[in-house]
């Protein structure tokens, strides 16, 4: 079955099986920043934005997305680099496996919430697991990133 998707604003045509998930479609097309983690909706590393909303790509059937806009971390490169800068300053970046999904979720949060508090940030990021950092440095980095109006 043919599905037309706008991946990072570029029209892509994919021939997919009925049961193919977006994670597989994107990774097969070399969007390898979309990670495969638990593959069961729990860890958040496969997060992409569909129409600006963060979703777990491991659990969304590609066939259901005709005409939708999908954003991977490559699609928000400038913002991701800015966030990475603050992650670096706080030593919040270790293995880096969760960073693309974290960046996308933070980007979506920035667009959805006005002046989120630390508690709101923590609640928003509940679904994005990081097994290296213990989160504290990431939370501080995210606060600095949100304060940066440049």
């Amino acid at each position: 079955m043919l599905v037309n998707l706008y991946v990072n604003n570029v029209l892509k045509k994919y021939h997919v099986q009925a049961g193919e998930f977006l994670l597989d479609t994107l990774r097969n097309d070399n969007y390898i920043s979309v990670r495969r983690g638990c593959d069961s909706t729990s860890c958040g590393v496969c997060t992409v934005l569909i129409e600006g909303k963060p979703v777990p790509s491991c659990s969304v059937l590609t066939i259901r997305l005709e005409g939708k806009h999908i954003t991977t971390v490559e699609g928000i490169q400038e913002e991701a680099e800015k966030l990475a800068h603050y992650f670096g300053l706080e030593g919040a970046d270790q293995c880096g496996f969760c960073n693309p999904s974290m960046a996308l979720t933070v980007y979506a949060m920035k667009n959805e919430l006005k002046n989120p508090t630390l508690e709101t940030i923590k609640a928003y990021l509940v679904g994005n697991l990081c097994r290296c950092t213990g989160y504290q440095a990431q939370h501080i980095a995210i606060l600095h990133y949100l304060e940066d109006r440049s």
């Binding site: 909706t41 963060p54 979703v55 777990p56 659990s59 969304v60 979720t105 949060m109 509940v126």
Partner: peptide
């Protein structure tokens, strides 16, 4: 609703 999993799951 707010306490169910993370935002990504709640969005689907």
């Amino acid at each position: 609703s707010k306490q169910i999993m993370g935002i990504t799951v709640r969005n689907i």
